[in-house]
Write a protein that binds this DNA or RNA. Structure first.
Lengths: 123, 123
DNA sequence: AACCGTGGTATCTGATTGAAACCAACACTA
DNA sequence: TAGTGTTGGTTTCAATCAGATACCACGGTT
């Protein structure tokens, strides 16, 4: 039993962790929107669509913590908070876009596989 | 406000869904292992390490449903079940590997950002 | 009959999600 | 000057989901 990649497990865990991080329900949607330029909170909320206030806050906080977005508060009234992608966030988009393209071109195959599987289960 | 990518939202949801699918705790670990060749259930369980029986079953079922792995039962006694990557599964590895490399090379930056964020919160 | 190895299921608990209500600060209006 | 609205956020709570633990079915061995 040869292991060609001695660190495969750790690396794989790292990747798995990252995927879990950005693979939640909203992170990518938010990142994609911010990829088109900085946005304020409610603007982003409307653009993403269907996200609750709390989840947007949570998502943005986590993205900020991981260094993917910056949060800038302008102490005006009413308050104004701008969110913007960092360099890291913009760099992340590159491999994500690759995967995105794969996902889009292969979604049909996946859905077909699912249909096949589900109908063979029903039998 | 120009939208250069009219279908960005749907596409993004597709990607987000895929990431959620393969971004769970075990899918990638399993796919990686199977990338080295077909394996039986308990063999895979030992190779992945730390995964419960139920989670391996669940993970494999979902991967099978999505058309990433095949499940072959040999009705011997004791039963023997082989799992193997499909073409789709092997193709998936390509963009995932890209993201994997990004994740590995940038993990340091992410962790650093987290440390910074956490310590600035503690203040 | 007791036991082991195979792969799989049922149960139960803690985390996550998300909807709805509430909060703080300030400006504008009546 | 009390009331109302805007903006970004937190709190609360019900529902859902992930995952660990314990158990099950089957047949061969002893």
């Amino acid at each position: 039993m040869k292991l060609r990649h001695p660190h495969a497990t750790e690396d794989c865990r790292a990747v798995s962790e990252i995927l879990q991080r950005i693979g939640d329900k909203w992170s990518l949607l938010v990142v994609r929107r911010l990829g088109q330029g900085p946005m304020r909170f409610n603007e982003l909320r409307a653009a993403v669509g269907g996200i609750s206030q709390k989840m947007l806050t949570t998502t943005l906080r986590t993205l900020e913590r991981d260094g993917f977005v910056t949060r800038t508060v302008y102490p005006t009234t009413p308050p104004r908070v701008d969110y913007e992608l960092t360099d890291l966030g913009r760099e992340l988009e590159i491999p994500v876009k690759e995967l995105a393209e794969w996902a889009i071109t292969n979604m049909g195959r996946i859905n077909e596989a699912r249909r096949r599987f589900d109908s063979s289960m029903a039998a």
